[in-house]
Amino acid sequence: MRTLNPAVKFVTLLAVTLILAGKHDPILNFAVFLLSMAAILSAQVKPRTLGLLLLPILLAAAGMFFTGYRFHAGGSMPVRAEILNIGSSALWNGLTQASRVLAYAGAGYLFALTTDRVRMICSFQRQFHLPQVFAYGLLAAWGIFPQMTREYRRTRAAFRARGIRVFPISPALLKPLLVKSVRWSEALAIAMESKGFSGQAKRTDFAPIRVQPRDWLFLLLTVGCTAAAAVLL
């Protein structure tokens, strides 16, 4: 999982998600969710990390279950239920809604937890022809993120030192952060441009990221199996 080409992995999982979006089958959704979990755990992600990430998803799924259960469109729907392949019962509707949240999140985490960020951007730049200037911009913004959290904590501590209680997302905390961010972005842009990262010049990569046969195999197998299951079920 970790060594697959990020761009190909992205396309594959996106395709799986979109196939699932067109299909309303809780069994298929649950299967995708479980397979993603298995793949994540086999990529040596700590179960604890995964568990913490899943907690909000499970809550959201429960929420969607009851929304689907209580407010299923049934007869009041403008289109016929059989066309959309939606079960008539409220329970089935609730299960479909809930399992969908799980399946989407499963595919999303599978990508997020097993992909190296910098490699992903390099791969997008090469395989999706993402313009260089955007790749640099993204990497720069990503690199500045830790500094932002530090700044936020510092402002918060400053308020606390003065004995003022502020809400975690109050404007008093966010305004200095926004001003600093603008300053950083300017300083960073000047620094990068002065060192040749302007995005205009062509450059070579130290370790170019290529698409290998096994990436294609992963793409074809995964999308093929999902599509087949979607048709058959």
């Binding site: 313009p131 972005s185 990068m192 995005g199």
Partner: peptide, 27 residues
């Protein structure tokens, strides 16, 4: 055209994206 975009603008846009993604996560 990509060349129209200056690095300054792009970094600004991406950083605003980061700020608001963080705000969104908090909210």
């Amino acid at each position: 055209k990509a060349s129209k975009w200056e690095l300054k603008d792009v970094i600004m846009m991406a950083i605003l994206g980061v700020v608001f993604a963080a705000v969104y996560l908090a909210v």
